[in-house]
């Protein structure tokens, strides 16, 4: 466990989460959420929880991003608010 790497990844995770809820374009929001999931996966691997990291990579960054894309393509791409 390297604490410098921990701090760096944690900083980017917070940045990605803030960007995902502020951006107006829903497609970029979904991509940012995928990046957030992948960085969480890195964080968990770095902390030694490999099984949780595997689940996060398969479900968070893989499947749920595809679900968000499917939902965006049948609704609207821009938020109203």
């Amino acid at each position: 466990m390297i604490w410098q790497l921990d701090i760096l990844i944690l900083f980017i995770v917070v940045l990605c989460a803030l960007a995902a809820i502020t951006v107006k374009d829903l497609l970029s929001s979904a991509i940012l959420l995928g990046a957030y999931s992948f960085l969480m996966c890195l964080l968990w691997t770095e902390m030694g929880a490999v099984d949780v990291a595997f689940t996060e990579a398969a479900v968070g960054a893989g499947i749920s991003t595809a679900f968000f894309f499917g939902a965006i393509f049948v609704t609207t791409r821009r938020t109203k608010d």
Partner: peptide
């Protein structure tokens, strides 16, 4: 991942998700 799930990281849930991802790639 499914076959080695009982003694290494991974398992039925993750392997099933990856299998589904391959099919979703085909749909896309």
């Amino acid at each position: 991942v499914i076959a080695h799930g009982h003694y290494s990281p991974g398992g039925g849930f993750q392997g099933g998700c990856i299998l589904a991802a391959s099919f979703i790639l085909l749909v896309i």
